[in-house]
Structure formats: structure tokens, C-alpha cells
């Protein structure tokens, strides 16, 4: 058997099952979703095969544009808070004694491995009107406040769900830093803060970018958390997509929203890799 024939046979044997699977269950479905953006809805769901630009027009209707912008805002705020909380956490874990390090890291990831729905449910219990936080506030003579069903509750839920995704890449980036760099900086008379600002921070920018992306992406497209903690009032783009498919049965408009979701994420990915290259 000639080597090149062997290679081709190997390529066929190993690649064709997986690629076929990907074409049938990924590319064709995505192609369908893409094609639906140009069609009209059927009265009972599905599509009517008549071309229309109405779906895109609706996307730029201020009403829906607000939802997209609102989702960007919510995901953005979540990402910033995650960074503000995650960076010091990762930094401190990286500087813990060796035997505590693994333990501290596992403790960060542990909640992440339990059921996602249950983690969100925990916040309903805490934030609800007659819930525990309000009972606590009442005991010290405050409240009750409406803590659930608003934007802050959504941000809190997203933060809780995705914080580990911020800490891990940050930890990896900080851990990799050569401690001698810091020592050199200190020996040259720089204060702890200056060392952090001039040495540690710039060298960990790639980790920051990855962490932000890891938190932003699942937050932006989420529908479970805004639904459970937002009370169906502050709809995010994920809710809107979900409800176009499962309630309003307007698949073409849902597909258009999904396309907008992907477009935003692609722009972010490009921005992230551009920024990472510059850093």
C-alpha cells in the first residue's frame, strides 16, 4: 500500500463518521436556521416559503433593539463584577501555599459541577419576597424589599453561575508568571501596587480577556436565569429567542434573533483575539 493511499484511506475512515455527523446535525440545522431568517412565519408555526425582509426590519425595531442592548448591558455588568471579584480571588489563590492551592481551586469549581437549575433555584429561595434575605433584613428593622424579578437579580444569578469561568483562566495566567519578575521589580524599588500595575497586570491581560469571554458568552445568550429570576419582565435576547420558538411559534423571527446573537459573539471573538495579540 502506497503511503499516500494509506493516508487517504485513513482520512476517510477516521474523519467521515464524525464529519457526517457534524454536517447532518450541525451544519444543515444551522443552514436551515439561516434560511429561515428570510421567510415568513406560518400561522401555526413553521415557515411559509415566501421571501421577506420583515424579520430584519423587526430586529431593528427599537423595542427589540432595546432587548439586545439590554442583554449586552446585563452580560457586560456581570462580566465586570466577575472580573472585579475574580481577579483578586485568582491572585490570592495563586499565592497560597502549595498544599492549599488545589483545595482552594477545587472549592471554586465545586459548585459549578452541580445542577445549573438548582444553583439558580437557590437564589429564588434567598431573594424571594418572603424569602430569607428579607427575613434577615426584617430582623434588623429594614425592608421588605422586592429583591427578585429585576435586573440585579439576573446579574446576581449569572454571576453566581459563571464566576468559576472567570477565576480559572485568571488563575492559570497569574500562576504562570515568573515570580522572579515580581522580585526584580521589588528589588528595583517598586511598591507592591506599582509592581502589580506595571508587571503583573499587563502580563495577565490574555487571561483577563479569556475569562471575560467565558463569562460574557453564556450570560449573553442565557434564557433560564432571566426567566427564573427576572419574572419574565426584563427579557434578554435568549428569552426572546426561546419564546419565539416555544410560545409565539414565530420561527423565522426567532432565527433572525439567533443570527443576531451569533453575530455579536463573532464580533466579540474577533475583538478578543485582536486584543490578545496586541497584549
Amino acid at each position: 500500500m502506497s503511503p499516500s493511499r494509506g493516508r487517504r484511506l485513513g482520512a476517510f475512515v477516521f474523519l467521515s463518521p464524525g464529519l457526517t455527523y457534524l454536517v447532518v446535525l450541525l451544519l444543515v440545522p444551522l443552514g436551515l436556521v439561516l434560511s429561515y431568517t428570510l421567510f415568513q412565519r406560518g400561522r401555526f408555526g413553521g415557515v411559509v416559503h415566501e421571501f421577506t425582509g420583515e424579520n430584519f426590519e423587526r430586529l431593528f425595531d427599537p423595542l427589540y433593539l432595546d432587548v439586545v442592548l439590554g442583554s449586552l448591558r446585563i452580560a457586560g455588568i456581570t462580566t465586570l463584577i466577575a472580573l472585579a471579584l475574580g481577579y483578586p480571588t485568582a491572585y490570592l489563590i495563586a499565592r497560597l501555599p502549595r498544599k492549599w492551592k488545589t483545595f482552594a481551586l477545587v472549592a471554586i469549581v465545586l459548585p459549578f459541577w452541580t445542577n445549573f437549575i438548582i444553583r439558580v433555584y437557590a437564589w429564588i429561595i434567598l431573594l424571594n419576597g418572603p424569602g430569607l434575605l428579607n427575613s434577615g433584613l426584617k430582623a434588623i428593622g429594614l425592608g421588605p424589599y422586592e429583591l427578585l424579578y429585576n435586573e440585579s437579580a439576573i446579574v446576581l444569578g449569572l454571576l453566581y453561575s459563571y464566576l468559576p469561568l472567570m477565576v480559572l483562566p485568571l488563575y492559570a495566567a497569574i500562576e504562570r508568571l515568573d515570580p522572579q519578575l515580581r522580585e526584580a521589580s521589588a528589588n528595583l524599588g517598586a511598591s507592591g501596587f506599582t509592581t502589580f500595575r506595571k508587571v503583573t497586570l499587563p502580563l495577565t491581560v490574555p487571561g483577563v480577556l479569556t475569562g471575560c469571554l467565558f463569562v460574557f458568552v453564556p450570560s449573553f445568550g442565557n434564557f433560564v436565569i432571566p426567566e427564573m429570576l427576572g419574572g419574565g419582565k426584563s427579557v434578554m435576547v435568549g428569552n426572546l429567542i426561546r419564546s419565539q420558538f416555544l410560545q409565539a411559534r414565530d420561527w423565522p423571527f426567532g432565527a433572525t434573533l439567533a443570527l443576531a446573537l451569533i453575530a455579536v459573539l463573532v464580533v466579540l471573538l474577533i475583538a478578543q483575539s485582536w486584543a490578545a495579540r496586541r497584549a
Binding site: L27, V28, P29, G31, L32, Y36, G46, H49
Partner: peptide, 21 residues
């Protein structure tokens, strides 16, 4: 090819439940 396949699939099957409004 992929885009064509997607369109073809959508054209054959998609309408059946709705065409009889």
C-alpha cells in the same frame, strides 16, 4: 453544498402541516 442541502431539506418537508390552513 451545505447551504443547498439545507434549503432542499427545508423546501421538501417544511410546509406539510401548514399548507392546509
Amino acid at each position: 453544498a451545505v447551504a443547498g442541502l439545507a434549503l432542499a431539506v427545508s423546501a421538501c418537508g417544511g410546509e406539510s402541516p401548514n399548507s392546509s390552513a
